[in-house]
Design a protein around this nucleic acid. Sequence first.
DNA 1: TAGCCTTTTGACAGCGCTGTCTTAGACGCT
DNA 2: AGCGTCTAAGACAGCGCTGTCAAAAGGCTA
Lengths: 370, 370
Amino acid sequence: MPPASRPWRIETLAGWRGQRITGVASGATDLGTVTIDDVAELAGVSIKTVSRVLNREPHVRESTRLRVEAAAAKLNYTPNVSARALAGSRSYLIGLYYDNPSLGYVGQIEQGAMAACRRAGYHLIVEELLETGSALRDSIVALNARVRPDGVILTPPLCDRPELLEVLEAVKAPYVRIAPSWDLDRSPYVYMDDRKAAYEMTAYLQGLGHRDIAFIGGPPDHVAAASRTEGFAEAMAVAGLEVRAGRIQPGEFSFRSGWDAAERLLKVARDRPTAIFAGNDDMALGVMAVANRLHIEIPADLTLVGFDDSPSAQVIWPRLTTVRQPAAEMASMAADILIERGSGESGSRGRRLDFELIVRDSSGPPGRRG
Amino acid sequence: MPPASRPWRIETLAGWRGQRITGVASGATDLGTVTIDDVAELAGVSIKTVSRVLNREPHVRESTRLRVEAAAAKLNYTPNVSARALAGSRSYLIGLYYDNPSLGYVGQIEQGAMAACRRAGYHLIVEELLETGSALRDSIVALNARVRPDGVILTPPLCDRPELLEVLEAVKAPYVRIAPSWDLDRSPYVYMDDRKAAYEMTAYLQGLGHRDIAFIGGPPDHVAAASRTEGFAEAMAVAGLEVRAGRIQPGEFSFRSGWDAAERLLKVARDRPTAIFAGNDDMALGVMAVANRLHIEIPADLTLVGFDDSPSAQVIWPRLTTVRQPAAEMASMAADILIERGSGESGSRGRRLDFELIVRDSSGPPGRRG
DNA sequence: TAGCCTTTTGACAGCGCTGTCTTAGACGCT
DNA sequence: AGCGTCTAAGACAGCGCTGTCAAAAGGCTA
């Protein structure tokens, strides 16, 4: 016989959580107040057995498992995360920590991570971490004491702060980095092959017939940016095309820096590249603005492509040809790694995901006009 | 004497959470494993007294309070959210539920809500709710059983789904809506005065000298959109300016619909408005694309303004004059209302926040050219 | 100094689960 | 029949806090 535990319970209207008062027996309990005891009673087993079924532990007879599952389904039972966290070794919470000012990027990451969490019954705790140094350390320690997430997902550029990694290791919080720049052996991470994506984009431009292609790079300490520049240069070299002096312009990944680079690139009307490959979309938009001002038509007079597939890339005209980062997928994968925890030691710690070339309206064959 | 509870404890290296093993006494405990017992012991009081101090309950002598606070500070103590949730009536978790496809908007909301949560020691659980009808109901019931958030923030247009509100009320989860359209007495909400913002923007255009101003509206069932149209019409009426037939164009808040409206508006070169006020930024960008194609210079030939201050509004040229919604502030306020729970019954349930007119480069006096 | 009231503090149960240990039963072998 | 071995299931403690209630400590008056 299972222990008789609270055979009836009714929520008073008074309280927030409600005090239990004795009342008429009732099969169904109040919405959202079903506990493991209720399931155990209905199934005629102990709560431990219910727990076993819930957690897919072995040593439960098939018939028992079915009975428990039926009872849980009938009562619409959902285990309480706080109780699980307190009693067990998992909190069913995944932290998503970011410091990225780009709302769109973080939003995609978030959606991907959320989807993975939902599939596994986890939840996402999102925190914006703007501190650095010891303030960051303190925040993490406090955060970890408070919620004890089962793992955290770190987005760039936050994922490259050494003090963060140190403190996460100190509090033994597993983490997965998304597109980290350094120290790749330190933890599991997911990434996209920026080099290859830039290579492919460049090859696409070459396939269109472009020979004189300019590239606008990113911040020097940004490893992904450097990879993009490399991919571009490599594709040009492989195709046997010369990259003339000044055809690789520095940039900062900002609209403004794209604008400035475009002014340098397009200044001399007789000596313009037929295509410009901007290291990210924001800079591409800067180029587009300059082109508009100079009455250079895209793509008729100039092909322009970007990188990132930012939201803005679709709300301008011409819509920007660009590279889509699998941000949501990377985040899903990161969450999965954390949820299945420990499956990370096999071989390389990095998981690569595929980019996608998105061809829109800003690219075309060179000199269509002439 | 306080109860002697675990005077020493050491985390083994083995376990995830670690089994406690006996070992040499040590003043400091491992990072992030300080409990209320440790604080109580150091302060020489019972855990209940520590709890009282933590929760700012009355009936604690000043000297005791200071002693406890010092002990807590020394040990770097942070109460565990799961334990608090399980034992008490608060989970220290606020839910942010959304279904809005606009990443930027949700991102701003999120940041605002997060800031408020952090100030109060709360955390944000973010969930994307794409279901409708009874699937939505089920999701909410499960979510609530799982994490029992102390309150939830609902963003538009999710906040206008009646089944959502019903089920939240059924599970007694307090909620605050952001910019809801209907049923305003039903719950606390925060909003911005769209009507007034549109009025002010129109007045600004009039102040610039524009008389023939066109407006592109939003979806008919979108209450905020309707308010914007009203604000525009009212400002025109108050200024004694005629709104000619066809000068108010329907739109869908999408880039494409802005484009289509612009084509109608700008078709006849001899009969163009001198200014176009788009009901949101995405549509304004559509207008801008058409203007570019037609070689209409903004703002020299045409003034264009938007509404929302979306991220894209700043990465185009000319940068868009627009209305900034106080999204982050609304979310902060929503979170505060939930955290201080219950202070909402005083007077109107709505809290209004101020918009901001952001004048950039896309607006200027009419006919500068002519 | 007893008696009463108010303020401060502590003991203890228990929130809803999981981890550990134990027991009950089924099965096989000598 | 006796014993060891295995699987299935339950008893029980306890995670780290809060809520309730009871006890102790002060304060005041007569």
